[in-house]
Nucleic acid binder design. Structure first.
Length: 881
RNA sequence: GCCCGGAUGGCGAAAUCGGCAGACGCAGCGGACUUAAAAUCCGCAGACCCUAACCGGUCGUGGGGGUUCAAGUCCCCCUCCGGGCACCA
């Protein structure tokens, strides 16, 4: 179509979409035509972007972008994410690396089931159709994926390895089943992991409050790795600080002590001291026996304040509270109210805002440090699933305890003072919570500093058998059971005789049946398929039932990037030597919304695989990059906001090159990006300028490609200088800052300089060989950002080798160097003039030039020059009085 | 409440190590080309003051202070916006 062989004046370009025509000498840039042609040519070369095997002599580089959920359509967030990764992959190929740049599909999950309900299409069919559509889109944009390693997580050749890993974890005691309170989303009709609850609501259904339900669930013991996940964050120097901080908060390590308070024998309490108004409940002897010798364990980070404890506070769900309630109907009613308040607060998400309430149980416990008798309360702000579900209340030195004690008139005891003021200062303003403090009224521990006291008191407790120093994590084990159909079946059986039995490895995969009626109520859909459920026990041969829950889809994405190295292996999840060659991932790129969920599960999975002996690394990702969101009209693009811009539409209007290049130009990649369609048009105009320039001069460039003398005309020198400055700028940015917006601006400046010099070029001021070099380098500089145009230009200037493997241009410092530089001259810090000096000028010469400059001389005449500050190559500041 | 980001022309942004604030682009204005339009090309463009016009001057990077010959950049205080965590004991 476009006659690239004949790109001179007579060239006519015909296209199907936007009609292009010949206007005098000008050739119109027609991205629709150019891109269609190259899309077709690339499709005929399946190995174009193929990684070389591990035997390659090149150094390896693994660049990875987060795989998409196959919703059926790419959105701008994808385009941005993948344009960054694609630019990097192309650049690294050109830098001589063996690049692995794979893509796949996170293909299990709820939307397929919802679509099935809505359209009566089986989830599998719907998903595969979407994948096909998105793959077409990706290829239309021209992303450089090595499709030989494509993975699709909903296919058995992938998910069988989820099952295999699950069995391995079960063997190692890392997968276990327990009944627990779980987060339940009524809309999803399934369980959510803690990580999937956002502000008390479902992460998919922003308005949907999450309920608590009791269910038997499978858990993965991520807490076994809590400490290592925390410690190894320090190895992740190539990760954004923000992501590391979020993970650190999520893991939530808290150092403190667990202390046991002995509960007073219930029967010993004199009637008149028992909880007022508790009525006539009679304590049966059997229950009294249960109370005897019971201890209440509390977790505290401030054991140094334990002499100031004036009560204990238990969670409403605490087992001991349940026992107390069993014999005290009135207490039960009061506690039930507290439970309700807590549940409501949890479900509404603003747990921090609820009003504190509590009730005295009528029971007492003894402080093991001083024997003091403390009332035992139940309070609605104590959480059963953190620490021990019980606290010691120290109102003088804790904000929450203070608030609570004020409300209920509980005693306050001051036991620490500010370190600096000393005892003479009297009582501090309460609550006083600083750790920079000294103990008072604390027996043998008085006058110790808080830090020292914490250590000594924990040791004391351990010595006397009523406590010890402990560490508590906020991180909980990962609940992976989902009562859904479209996921990996959990490979477990329940035998009447043998109980829980793993499916033998040889029977994997446990296939997900195809014909399943999807409804949104009544537990797992698989449970309604007798052919799936009913099986035999591999141990005893008797009747057994299959587990009917499926796995959380975050399991799929926790290890997928290992599979890319060996996607068709049917003997193992991957070959160790392939992973050893490609890992760690050199650069991972994705949205910050996965900073916790996906990125922490992946790190966990890697550590488990290491402990299984499958791999030899501690962390999967060397460098992680979190790109910003795509914004339109001040809000994140979303269907509900109605501000979605379709990539297809942009591509149809301006071309894939302009669309992806705009996504890199409009903001630095880590910042939010404001989508403005006029900006895409601007990029399209720029590419058109490049195209016209190249078409106009391509002939001469081909003629001069055989090199030749470079004459030193000022125009030639100026253009070469600009070229080498641009190469330097972009090369440095890829290595460091990734400010592709300024990289593209630099290319624009280069092109501006070229078009401005067209009269001189036409007049023969630039030798053909130089013109050839400039055009060739310009094409290479564009290649990571606008690959279609780059390939087109590459051919048009007579290059026949593969552009993707062409070496990245090298910059020459000598050519990049300015001969003359402008030095601003200030007087008393205010800019007054600019002098132009030779770039090699000495300080003395610059100083003289500045002082003798006409305007400066006039302004300083008759004044005393106190000082002259001279910053080499930067500025002169003359201080006068 | 705690922890991260961020705030610069009409708009997206640039200024990488304390050294000419606003590169590059969008929108806008003026001009050339054209019968006309589109496309393209050239030029102007932070605000204010002075001027017939030039020349020139003052102010200006969310607000207030400070350090410095010099601050968008460093220090202290504050406001607003975005994100994360949160009765976590």
């Amino acid at each position: 179509m476009a006659t690239i062989e004949n790109s001179g004046a007579a060239t006519a370009v015909k296209g199907d979409a936007a009609p292009a025509c010949t206007l005098g000498q000008e050739v119109r840039y027609n991205p629709a035509e150019i891109e269609a042609r190259w899309t077709e040519r690339w499709a005929e070369q399946p190995d174009l972007y193929a990684a070389e095997p591990a035997s390659s002599a090149k150094p390896k580089y693994y660049v990875l972008e987060m795989l998409p959920y196959p919703s059926g359509v790419l959105h701008m967030g994808h385009v941005r994410n993948y344009s960054i990764g694609d630019a990097l992959a192309r650049y690294m190929w050109m830098q001589g690396y063996n690049v692995l740049h794979p893509m796949g599909w996170d293909a299990f999950g709820l939307p397929a089931e919802n679509a099935a309900l809505k359209n009566n299409t089986p989830p599998r069919e719907w998903t595969l159709k979407n994948i096909a559509a998105m793959k077409v889109q990706m290829n239309r944009i021209g992303f450089s994926y090595d499709w030989r390693n494509e993975i699709t997580t909903c296919l058995p050749d992938y998910y069988r390895w989820n099952q295999w890993f699950f069995l391995k974890m079960f063997e190692r005691g890392l997968a276990y089943r327990k009944k627990s309170k779980v987060n339940w989303c009524p809309q999803c009709a399934t369980v959510l992991a803690n990580e999937q609850v956002v502000g008390g609501c479902c992460w998919r259904h922003e308005e949907q409050l999450v309920e608590q339900r009791d269910l038997e669930q499978w858990f993965l013991r991520i807490t076994n790795y809590a400490q290592e996940l925390l410690d190894d964050l320090s190895k992740l120097g190539g990760w954004p600080e923000k992501v590391r901080t979020m993970q650190r908060n999520w893991i939530g390590r808290s150092e403190g002590a667990e202390i046991e308070f002995e509960l007073e024998d219930w029967t010993d309490v004199p009637e008149d001291e028992k909880r007022p108004n508790r009525g006539t409940a009679i304590l049966p002897a059997s229950n009294a026996a249960k109370g005897m010798g019971k201890r209440i364990a509390v977790f505290t980070t401030r054991v140094d304040t334990i002499f100031g404890a004036t009560s204990l506070q238990l969670a409403p769900e605490h087992p001991l509270v349940k026992q107390m309630c069993a014999i005290d109907a009135e207490l039960e009613r009061a506690v039930e109210a507290l439970r309700e308040q807590q549940k409501k607060a949890r479900e509404s998400g603003d747990v921090g805002a609820i009003e504190k309430h509590g009730v005295f149980t009528g029971h007492y416990a003894f402080n093991p440090f001083n024997g003091e008798r403390l009332p035992v309360w139940v309070a609605n702000y104590i959480l059963l699933d953190y620490g021990t579900g019980a606290i010691m209340s120290v109102p003088a030195h804790d904000d929450r305890d203070y608030e609570f004690a004020k409300k209920y008139g509980l005693e306050m005891k001051v036991v620490i003072l500010p370190r600096r003021s000393g005892e003479a200062e009297g009582e501090p303003l309460l609550p006083f919570t600083s750790e920079d403090s000294l103990l008072i009224n604390s027996g043998d521990f008085s006058s110790l500093g808080s830090e020292e006291a914490k250590r000594k008191m924990a040791a004391f407790a351990e010595e006397h058998g009523f406590g010890k120093a402990t560490v508590t994590f906020r991180l909980k084990d990962w609940g992976v059971s989902r009562q859904r159909y479209w996921g990996t079946p959990i490979p477990m059986l329940y035998c009447e005789k043998d109980g829980i039995v793993p499916v033998p490895e040889s029977e994997l995969p446990v296939l997900l049946p195809d014909q399943v009626a999807i409804t949104q109520q009544g537990g797992s859909p698989l449970g309604r398929i007798p052919a799936f459920v009913n099986t035999t026990c591999p141990k005893c041969g008797g009747k057994a039932r299959r587990e009917t829950d499926t796995m959380d889809t975050f399991v799929d994405s926790s290890w997928y990037f290992y599979r890319y190295t060996d996607a068709h292996n049917d003997q193992a999840p991957f070959a160790a030597e392939k992973v050893a060659y490609w890992f760690p991932i050199d650069q991972y790129i994705g949205g910050v919304e996965h900073a916790i969920l996906h990125l922490i599960y992946s790190r966990f999975w890697t550590k488990v695989m290491r402990d299984m002996g499958l791999i030899g690394i501690d962390e999967p990702v060397e460098r992680q990059f979190a790109q910003g969101m795509v914004i339109k009209n001040g809000a994140k693009m979303s269907k509900s906001k109605g501000n979605v811009v379709s990539p297809d539409e942009m591509i149809a209007r301006y071309g894939a090159d302009a669309t992806r290049m705009y996504s890199l130009f409009a903001a630095p990649p880590d910042r939010d990006l404001d989508w403005q369609e006029d900006g895409v048009a601007g990029i399209s105009r720029f590419l058109a300028r490049v195209y016209r320039f190249a078409m106009k001069h391509g002939e001469r460039a081909r003629a001069g490609a055989g090199a030749g003398p470079t004459s030193a005309t000022p125009t030639t020198q100026a253009l070469l200088r600009k070229l080498h400055q641009t190469i330097r700028k972009i090369t440095e940015d890829f290595a460091g800052r990734w400010h592709f917006n300024t990289c593209i601006a630099a290319i624009m400046e280069l092109v501006n300089a070229l078009t401005a010099a067209e009269p001189q070029i036409a007049a023969g001021a630039v030798p053909d060989a130089v013109l050839a070099e400039i055009l060739r380098s310009l094409t290479l500089l564009l290649a990571p950002f606008a690959p279609y145009l780059a390939f087109e230009l590459w051919e048009s200037i007579g290059q026949t080798d593969n552009l993707l493997r062409a070496p990245w241009p090298k910059f020459d410092e000598a050519l990049a160097k300015e001969e003359q530089i402008e030095i601003p001259v200030q007087i008393n810090g205010k800019l007054r003039s600019v002098v132009c000096v030779d770039s090699e000028a000495t300080e003395e010469q610059i100083r003289d030039a500045a002082l003798s400059e006409e305007k400066i001389a006039a302004l300083t005449a008759g004044k005393e020059v106190v000082r002259v500050i001279l910053v080499p190559r930067k500025l002169v500041n003359i201080v006068v009085k």
